[in-house]
Write a protein that binds this DNA or RNA. Sequence first.
RNA 1: GGCCCCAUCGUCUAGUGGCCUAGGACGAAGCCCUCUCAAGGCUUAAACUCGGGUUCGAAUCCCGAUGGGGUCACCA
Length: 513
Amino acid sequence: MAERVIILMTTSVRTRFAPSPTGDMHIGGVRTAIFSWLTAKRHDGLFFIRIEDTDQDRRVPGSCRRILETFDWLGIELDGGPDHASLQLMSSDEDYPGALEDGSSRGIPGSFIQSQRLPHYREWAEWLVANGCAYRANETPEELEHMRADVIARKEVWSFREEMRLRTDVDSSQPHVIRLRVNPRDGTTHLHDLVKGDVCFENANVDDTVLLKADGYPTYHLANVVDDHLQGVTHVIRGDDWLSSAPKHVLLYKYFGWEMPKFAHVPNVLGEDGRKLSKRHGATGVFEFRDQGYLPTAVINFLAMLGWAPGEGDEQNVFTIPELIEKFSEDHIGTSPAVFSYTKLDWLNGMHIRRLPPAELAQHLIPFAQKAGIALDTPERMERFLRAVPLIQERIKTLKDAAGLIDFMFTDIPPVTAASLIDKKMDQAASLKVLRETRELLAQLPDFDPTIMEQAMRQLAERLTVKPGALFTIVRNVVTGKSVTPPLFGTISVMGREMTLERLDRAIDVLNR
RNA sequence: GGCCCCAUCGUCUAGUGGCCUAGGACGAAGCCCUCUCAAGGCUUAAACUCGGGUUCGAAUCCCGAUGGGGUCACCA
């Protein structure tokens, strides 16, 4: 036991999520981020984000702040990330109110934006050249394209190699790239992956990839390895699609003589047809889910279980964030790709909604209700809304569903028609009588308490010799304008006497005609 | 096409050689509860891709086939 404590204290887990600022975050990326975050937090470690903006062409201004906003919404606290100053240094002058004041406050060296770390990459690229692990090359993109086309025309496998260089006298003061020298050419490069297990690559299949581009920016391969080492990353958790370039990274760690982090390549998220999840399957951006009324805790819960399960006979499905952190284990991440199920997300969202204290749920609901046209501009209306929330809590799957269930409490309902008021088993006269008696009863009832109201109405039904259900149905139609509503008496109680009686009167008029 | 990864109910998964006539969850169907709708409870249908091995014994280990996915840029 004492031994275990020591291990926990001396092993500081550090993970990162490294998005490139090319637009809103994809839900698959969010899942990878969640796995990384959970891994760090499970071990009481640090989780940070690093913006990989080494391709100036692909940069989408504003996406950096959107990434920060994503984590804000999810409720995931970052232990490192871009701060205000470095955010503004980006070419678009962007900023985000929620950005960290000091990006490296937890002892992780910044910057957290790769375009501001260029000297590091240059330094280590030159180090590789000086140590025979990399070389300079200056073929133009057009030349490379021709070489590639020739090789492919011969149906051979394209792979750049040092001896294929068109010019060997590369002037280091002129534009050129620095390429990885794969060495030895034979033999294999081995990787132990936390989710895939042992993976082996023939060095002959690993090409001399570009490490430093002619514009002075690094490629992913270099930047990623240099940064992860400098920033003390212990677990590299990333998408499956990086697995095939992993040998390049392993080689780099070896060349540098740096300790290799643990790798975990997590499988992709697929759409319902088994293809990689994309827009035609439905929502894919985080903010789409937010705007459609999903709770961040439900999204995290759902994503975490997409490819992960507690295992060992534990059959829990609904998790709070602390439970997730406690039970998560990176070596229980599944090996095969998972299909994104919108219906299961709906169910989980409903579960999380039901577990929220009503007051908290109400706060989540307010913007959605307002957007749907429910004005909450007076204390009285807000009070009514707050009282309505418990009535719908177990009836909604998304925050968006709420408005449709309670709108009639806030807006006029369409005029009733005589036909809709006459129950199948009742004629016009009977319906009229029922409504008049109900009106009379509710007008005199001293208290609009749901239980008292229900008792009185049941007595009324008995007196009129109609079934309670039939009575309630008629009243429901009249008072709400709908055939499906939250429980009748709770609803009437929230609506209040004035609105209820007015709607009853209107219906009585219609039947009287 | 080369290389790499993957393969249990429709979906997410448990399962690491005997506890598996394969467990849970979503979804589906039915029943109960019930003022409608939900929620909740109970029940049912539903899977180890195929073929060879190894073993007394395989969903679990090995080989092969098939099928899916990823990757082959001065993109990440």
